[in-house]
Amino acid sequence: MDRMTQHYIAVATYTAKPDATEQVALLLPQLAAASRAEEGNISYSVARDLEHPNVFTIVEVYQDADAFTAHRESAHFASIGKMQIIPLLESRVVVGYEGDGVIA
């Protein structure tokens, strides 16, 4: 039977510097794979804007805000996200949401 559950959603928009777009495109799947393995992660997807290929949208779903905080404090986020990806960005916007959904 399906049940409703509360969760935390983060939507991040990363705009890469023009000369770093392809490097960001290669690093984001690494960050996504490591993040999907986190205990509190429900899903993590990365999309690239078709009209502006240097813009990436990341949609992350966690069991709760604490799980998202743990993600931001993880070793892989520090090494891949903070040290490699973020310096290559022109801008980074992260918005958090509380939501509910159905788990089958």
Rank of each mutant, 00 (worst) to 15 (best):
M4T: 15
T5E: 13
I9V: 10
A10P: 01
A10W: 01
A10I: 07
A12G: 02
A12I: 14
A12V: 11
T13I: 11
K17E: 07
T21W: 02
T21E: 11
T21H: 03
E22K: 04
Q23D: 09
Q23Y: 03
V24S: 06
V24Q: 03
A25R: 06
L26A: 14
L27C: 05
L28R: 05
L28W: 00
L28N: 10
P29N: 15
P29M: 02
P29D: 13
Q30K: 10
L31P: 10
L31S: 04
A34R: 15
S35P: 09
R36D: 10
R36H: 03
E39K: 09
I42A: 11
S43P: 03
Y44W: 10
V46P: 09
A47H: 03
A47R: 08
D49M: 08
D49C: 13
L50W: 01
E51P: 04
E51K: 12
N54I: 00
T57K: 02
T57P: 00
E60N: 07
V61I: 15
Y62L: 04
Q63E: 13
Q63H: 14
Q63W: 13
A65H: 09
D66R: 06
A67G: 03
A67S: 05
A67D: 00
H71R: 07
R72S: 13
R72T: 05
S74V: 11
H76W: 13
H76T: 08
F77W: 13
A78T: 15
S79D: 15
I80M: 12
G81C: 10
G81M: 12
G81R: 06
K82C: 08
K82H: 07
Q84G: 15
I85G: 01
I86C: 15
I86D: 12
P87M: 09
L88Y: 04
L88K: 13
L88I: 08
L89A: 15
E90W: 05
R92D: 03
R92G: 10
V93K: 11
V93P: 06
V94D: 06
